[in-house]
Amino acid sequence: MSNDILVITEHMDGKFSDVSFEMVGKAKELASALGGRAVAVVVGGGVSSNVFASDSTIHIDDAALSQFNPEAYGKVIEALVKEKSPRLVMFGWTATGMDLAAWLSAKLGVPCAAYVKNIGADLTMSCQAYGGKMSADVSPEGDMAIAACLAGSFPVEAGQGSTAATSIASPVALDGLKIKFVEAIKPAGGDVDITAQAKLVSIGRGIGSKDNVELAEELAGKLGATVSSSRPVVDAGWLPRTRQVGKSGLKVKPKLYLMLGISGAPEHLEGMKSAELIIAINTDKKAPIFNVAHYGATADLFEVAEAMLELL
């Protein structure tokens, strides 16, 4: 048993994601309070791992791990965690971390908190819950805990550094895997690139039906903007997946982000909160989006959009 904190970093195409640095920074802060070390864990090959401000960095460098594979990564991390017995294991609440954190929790019988926004020195975790409508403070019981942290919760800079990584071979055999990576899928071309747009009119579930998307298109047309959306609109088939903003979609940073009928689930906020001007129209005055937007109105999006069309 140690007071170390393992940070499971994540990378794609040779680059580490911001949340990796954020977690390392936070881990350092916690480790010093707990009297342990912040250990960055890099799983996979093809990446330069001397980039963290961690107390140490372990790089499990194996060609079989060069692409994310939840089964392989899970086995490696499980073995490592068992060996190191850290106080806390940190994952990003991301497409990769989500495959591993709860799995590891159930596998090892270790408490896990998700949607973690903050972690106190006593390991009390503040979590977003119920689509951002609630905030929960929970504290894990026992000697070890897992935290799956929301991106954007901690500063990036605190985790950046140049600690030399120690490369090790995989602690477990990686043959006979049931999951095989086949190929990467790049975003389908042909549609507009919403990450390159200066103005976005973004629609959410509140748009109601596919027909109503036209109204947003019309408004966007008048504003010289492009229509983007939250996940439910894409899942319903009303817009192509290339228009989806958020955790599983694209991260955008336009000059204007005009939101119609988006309540602001954490997954969406992750993709747009650095837009320069955020205006949100939603009928629910308690929608979390109003905590992020610069301007907001509790109003019917159709009425506002129609009235705007007349004025533009």
Binding site: G208, D211, N212, T283, D300, F302
Partner: peptide, 8 residues
């Protein structure tokens, strides 16, 4: 059938 909101 128009898919309009009830409150309207």
């Amino acid at each position: 059938p128009l898919g309009q909101p009830q409150r309207k």
